[in-house]
Design a protein around this nucleic acid. Structure first.
Length: 375
DNA sequence: CTCGACTTTTGTGGTGTAAAGCACT
DNA sequence: GAGTGCTTTACACCACAAAAGTCGA
């Protein structure tokens, strides 16, 4: 409530420098940070590089974003996404989950993270010839950034094996999804570009060829390049950084949260539990909990709703994978609700009314059940 | 706004039972 | 892998007083 009276600009101020506009949110520090401060803070030591950061929610400016709404061109945290899209009219918005990152990424990697562009071709923007060589260089760079139309950023969908048949899995008819799953600056694109430009200038080395620096800084985008991806093996940051986690292909094809979607078993998925372990909660919350946070009835109605929309033509071209995306959004939302609920959870039995306890203890029973008392 | 009458909802614990887990053959 | 027996776990069941909600005066 009081937040509404605060100047939106102030509400988004970096918690560290208190000057720049915050664009990222660090869960471990519970802090809003601009790109520069994020680098400063999280390059301090190896421990800090493990902090997971996400874009800041465009709606509340106070939580890590996990959903990108393409229709609104905004990024939302789970709660705001839920609020904004709970009505049927807005629930048809084209949304998709977005990932966070750890480590100490370079400017180019940040560009890749926010999904502005694949830097392979556009590296000149940050190259020394362009950056810091005068107004034209900067303007051209900005022009480059704003004009790139087909960003290519590895995303979760990239892990759906469709082209590589060596593993023996046949691809399905599922149409390819856009690869820019992380292409989601939200409503602060200008600020993102501004800060990235500044960040790039401050970097001693403007080379954007992937180097061993990644290994040194520990930067790990949540989704690794498909080129390096082998079915059944994924690198995550929640385990030993050097050890890939292997799991049988059949497990990856049918993660629990999708177990009801048999058709999807044709594709090789990496389980969310592995990919989403960047948050403590998502790593420790079994799907059982998530499932129970929404009743079976609600799940069924959601499925039915989707099927009706597909059948009715409102989602005519909806690929099967889109259902999977919505499920992942549900999952994010469920995680968020679970977090809130967990704060107030009591594991010990709590007697709210002592008088009722006394009464129950003295009540006559038959085989443990309360029995009627004839008066 | 307060009060009283009335209705509806909640919470309490011991036991039985089904389901799950486990070891063993 | 299938079958069996044992143990563990989760949950429904019951009655009714107390709490909470509703409504009219």
């Amino acid at each position: 409530m009081t937040d509404r009276k605060i100047n939106p600009k102030q509400r988004r101020l970096c918690d560290y420098c208190n000057q720049s506009k915050a664009l990222l949110y660090c869960r471990a520090d519970s802090a809003k940070l601009c790109f520069s401060c994020d680098r400063e803070v999280h390059s301090a030591n190896q421990l800090f590089t493990k902090h997971s950061r996400s874009l800041l929610c465009d709606a509340c400016d106070n939580s890590p974003a996990s959903i990108f709404c393409e229709t609104e061109q905004s990024v939302f945290c789970s709660n705001c996404d839920w609020e904004n899209h709970k009505f049927s009219s807005s629930s048809l918005h084209n949304r998709r989950p977005i990932e966070g990152f750890t480590g100490c990424p370079s400017a180019s990697e940040l560009v890749s993270f926010v999904g502005i562009e694949d830097l392979g071709d556009k590296a000149p923007f940050f190259s020394e010839e362009k950056v810091g060589c005068g107004e034209d260089g900067e303007d051209d760079g900005l022009l480059y950034l704003l004009s790139w139309e087909t960003p290519v950023t590895s995303g979760f969908d990239d892990l759906i094996v469709s082209n590589d048949f060596e593993h023996g899995f046949k691809p399905t008819d599922v149409p390819p999804l856009p690869k820019n799953r992380n292409a989601s600056c939200g409503q602060h694109k200008e600020e993102v570009l501004h800060q990235l430009r500044y960040l790039a200038k401050s970097e001693p080395n403007h080379s954007f060829v992937k180097t061993d620096v990644d290994a040194i800084t520990g930067f790990q985008p949540w989704i690794t390049d498909t080129d390096n991806l082998q079915p059944g093996i994924v690198h995550t940051s929640c385990k030993n950084d050097t050890d890939p986690i292997s799991f049988p292909a059949y497990e990856s094809s049918t993660p629990q949260c999708f177990s009801d979607n048999v058709e999807m078993a044709d594709q090789v998925f990496l389980p969310f539990s592995q990919l989403r372990c960047y948050t403590e909660e998502s790593a420790v919350v079994p799907d059982k909990h998530l499932g129970s946070s929404r009743t079976t009835h609600e799940n069924e109605s959601l499925e039915n709703q989707l099927q009706h929309q597909i059948a009715g033509g409102t989602m005519s071209a909806l690929p099967k994978v889109a259902v999977h995306e919505l499920n992942s959004q549900e999952r994010d939302s469920a995680i968020s609700r679970y977090k809130e609920k967990r704060k107030t959870r009591r594991y010990d039995k709590h007697i709210r009314y002592e008088s009722r306890k006394v009464r129950a203890e003295s009540r006559t029973r038959i085989k443990g059940r309360f029995a009627k008392v004839d008066h």
